[in-house]
Design a protein around this nucleic acid. Structure first.
Length: 282
DNA sequence: GCCGGATGGTAAG
DNA sequence: TTACCCTCCGGCG
């Protein structure tokens, strides 16, 4: 299973946690590092019983009976492959129990950590949209304080966790919010809708193991069978708006590509005057 | 065969 | 802001 064969956002991580837990928890797991770069970690984990697998934002944590916590972050290229044929020579870590084999490839982080580091890592993450009881209030508080573009704030994992480049752009489109609007310019109603939209999108991604944000009624190639790539997104890598037909604008925000329909997502009409300006005017 | 991207993140300057 | 880490794949010669 390739999990899209693509770059992971929170939905991929949560799906992996679920699948790995079902296949491996409670079992003695064989752990090896075919590539050799993680032999030390493999030796420490081999033949231990896996107790649970947790996902926090885009981080994975594996807890073992009598061994340190395994921390995995897939980064941009990382993936797990299930019983791959043929196996990649670059396999960093192989987890195997009973009939299940998972190979880790290309992860930026594959390390053993203690509870203190675990606490620090999880502690610096904002609420995880895929956590059942994710609390929107601290996120709303943070956004109200920030002048940075909302698109940038949405992928700041300290504010909220699990959202990546595709989900942020798709959710902003669905909510009619321009990516460059200052985070603090959002109304509470806009924020609530954005929060809800992201939660629904991510949950759906976990189930479908793929990002498809376009509503079935808006797909051009019918709603049956596998959704073709050109029917998956509203704006990400698109050229024309599916709703109004205008050109999708593509540009760079920081280091990341962003896409928006500036007709469906109008830029802020008038920037709110700053305190200084108001003082000068008064 | 080489080059350039790609849904991420960190750390140095 | 920039460099860097990780892998795979398609485009181009």
């Amino acid at each position: 299973m390739m999990y899209n064969g693509c770059v992971p956002e929170g939905h991929t991580i949560h799906r992996l946690a679920r699948d790995h837990a079902r296949a491996l928890v409670g079992r003695v797991v064989r752990v090896a590092s075919p590539q050799g770069r993680h032999s030390m970690q493999a030796e420490q984990l081999d033949q231990h019983v896996l107790e649970c697998v947790e996902a926090h934002g885009k981080h994975l944590f594996y807890r073992w009976r009598g061994a340190p916590i395994l921390h995995v972050h897939l980064g941009l290229f990382g993936s797990f492959r299930q019983s791959p044929v043929p196996p990649s020579p670059n396999t960093q870590l192989r987890l195997h129990a009973a009939a299940a084999t998972f190979d880790l490839i290309g992860a930026t982080t594959c390390e053993l950590i203690d509870d203190e580091r675990y606490g620090r890592l999880v502690g610096r993450l904002g609420p995880d949209l895929l956590a059942e009881t994710a609390d929107p209030e601290p996120v709303w508080q943070q956004l109200q304080r920030r002048a940075t573009p909302i698109a940038s704030a949405l992928v700041d994992q300290r504010i909220l966790s699990g959202v990546g480049n595709v989900y942020r752009l798709e959710a902003l489109f669905v909510c009619g919010i321009h990516p460059e609007r200052p985070a603090r310019s959002l109304t509470r109603a806009e924020f609530d809708r954005l929060w809800q939209t992201l939660r629904v999108m991510l949950r759906q991604g976990v189930e479908e193991q793929r990002i498809v944000t376009v509503h079935p009624a808006e797909r051009t190639n019918g709603a049956q069978g596998e959704v073709p790539l050109e029917d998956a997104f509203y704006v990400y890598k698109q050229h024309h708006c599916r709703r109004c037909g205008s050109a999708i604008r593509a540009w760079r925000l920081g280091t990341r590509p962003v896409y928006a329909c500036e007709r469906c997502q109008p830029p802020a009409a008038r920037p709110r005057p700053t305190l200084e300006r108001r003082a000068a005017a008064g």
